[in-house]
Simulated scan of single mutants.
Amino acid sequence: MAPGSLDVNDTASVAAAAETAHDSTVVLNNAGITNTKPLLEITLDEVRALYETNVFAPLAVAQAFAPVLEANGGGALVDILSGLSWLATPSAYPSTKSAFWSLTNGLRIELAGQKTQVVGAHLAFTDTPLIAELDVPKADPRDIVAVIYDGLEAGDLEVICDDISRGIKSALSGPIEALYPQFAPGN
């Protein structure tokens, strides 16, 4: 394994990274793969792969780095979530982000005693290799990082990083038809 490399789906690699980065005070917990096949067409093995990378791997990172953060005064764990953490689509990907969001909220409670700030960072389309093929407006990763660090410094528990995620979050308090027009009366 090269210095600084990490395979989030390999617990030995995660443990080695935590040992190597024993002086960490901030951990950016970001892992993700996507699959947009419809729920009735995706195989269960494909769904398992999504959950392995998008849910179980970041939990393994949190478990491995929690003692490191505690040893260094508490620090911060920043879980990179998605605007889709709050929204369903007819694919399995959003459910993985919802599950990771729920784990983030649980980790926040569990790690409060060691004074670790757990931040859930919700973002949509960011110009990364994961969505390189999508023809949509994308946020600059540097802007996203700046928003996250501003939230960290402010002591925020949730950071809504972009306009798309802010729009989704604000629509949650409105009628369901705002998010899902197919449920409007008369449809």
Rank of each mutant, 00 (worst) to 15 (best):
M1V: 06
G4H: 09
V8I: 11
N9T: 11
E19Q: 14
E19R: 15
E19A: 15
A21N: 14
V27I: 15
E41N: 02
E41K: 02
I42P: 01
T43K: 14
V47S: 08
R48C: 05
L50K: 06
T53Y: 10
N54P: 07
F56Y: 15
P58F: 03
A64P: 09
V68F: 09
N72V: 03
N72I: 04
G74M: 00
A76H: 00
I80M: 15
I80H: 05
I80V: 14
W86H: 08
L87P: 07
A88S: 14
P90Y: 13
A92T: 00
K97R: 11
L103T: 05
T104I: 02
E110V: 00
Q117G: 05
V119Y: 02
A121Q: 05
H122S: 02
L123S: 08
F125A: 15
P129W: 14
L130D: 02
A132C: 09
V136W: 05
K138S: 11
P141R: 07
P141T: 05
I144A: 04
V145H: 15
V145Q: 14
Y149V: 00
E153Q: 12
D156Y: 09
L157S: 11
V159I: 06
D162S: 03
D163A: 13
I168D: 08
K169Q: 14
S170T: 13
E177F: 07
P181S: 02
P185N: 01
